[in-house]
Simulated assay, not measured.
Amino acid sequence: MDTLPLPEPIAAYFAAEHNPEALARCFSAQAVMRDDGHTYTGVNAITAFMAEASARYSATSVPFAMELDDGIQLVRANVSGNFPGSPIVLNYRFRVEGGLIASLEISA
């Protein structure tokens, strides 16, 4: 199976989805993440949310498409886990600055 080539901070994000310490290294200090109608600001808030979501849903994300749109890396991924509607395709909109994720918006 071929792996979708992704820019380093985005590849690291998907590789770290169940490892909060590794996940924290993917984001800038003031990063903003939007998911499921909530906004999380800063590495600590983002990693706390992701650790809780990982424990609750045991979701696995498999990116399958990427495009660049006005400076935003849009990655589409198949996501499966212990949540209603699994599996689902989610859109991840990454803005990368200085080799780190500055913002991320996740939507269906």
Rank of each mutant, 00 (worst) to 15 (best):
R56W: 01
F94E: 06
I10F: 11
S28G: 15
Q73T: 03
P9D: 12
L23S: 09
R56V: 00
D35F: 05
F27D: 07
S58C: 03
V43G: 07
A15G: 15
I72Y: 10
Q30C: 07
A45G: 08
N78V: 02
E67Y: 03
N91A: 15
P87T: 08
L6Q: 13
L90T: 08
R56M: 03
P20Y: 04
T60A: 11
I46S: 07
P5H: 05
G71H: 01
N91H: 13
D2N: 10
D2I: 04
V89Y: 10
S80Q: 09
I88V: 15
M50P: 00
L104E: 07
Y13E: 10
E52A: 09
M1T: 10
V79I: 10
S80C: 04
E52H: 04
S54Y: 01
D36Y: 01
A12P: 02
A45Y: 09
L6F: 13
A15M: 09
E8D: 15
E52K: 06
S54W: 02
E17G: 09
L74W: 09
P9N: 13
F64D: 11
V79P: 03
R56K: 12
V32N: 04
L100P: 02
S86C: 03
F49A: 04
N44H: 10
S58K: 12
A77L: 06
G37R: 02
A22W: 05
H18D: 10
P84E: 06
T47G: 06
R76C: 07
P63C: 01
L6I: 12
S86T: 09
T3R: 14
F83I: 03
A51P: 01
R56S: 04
V96W: 11
R95T: 15
Y57I: 00
A55P: 00
F83R: 00
V32T: 13
P7G: 07
H38N: 13
T47V: 15
M1G: 15
S28W: 10
P63Q: 01
M1L: 09
T3G: 08
D2K: 09
T60E: 11
L90S: 14
E8W: 08
A65L: 05
G85V: 06
L90M: 14
S61G: 09
S107D: 11
A15T: 09
Y40L: 12
A16G: 12
T47H: 06
D36W: 00
A65E: 11
A53N: 02
L74N: 13
P63Y: 04
G37Q: 06
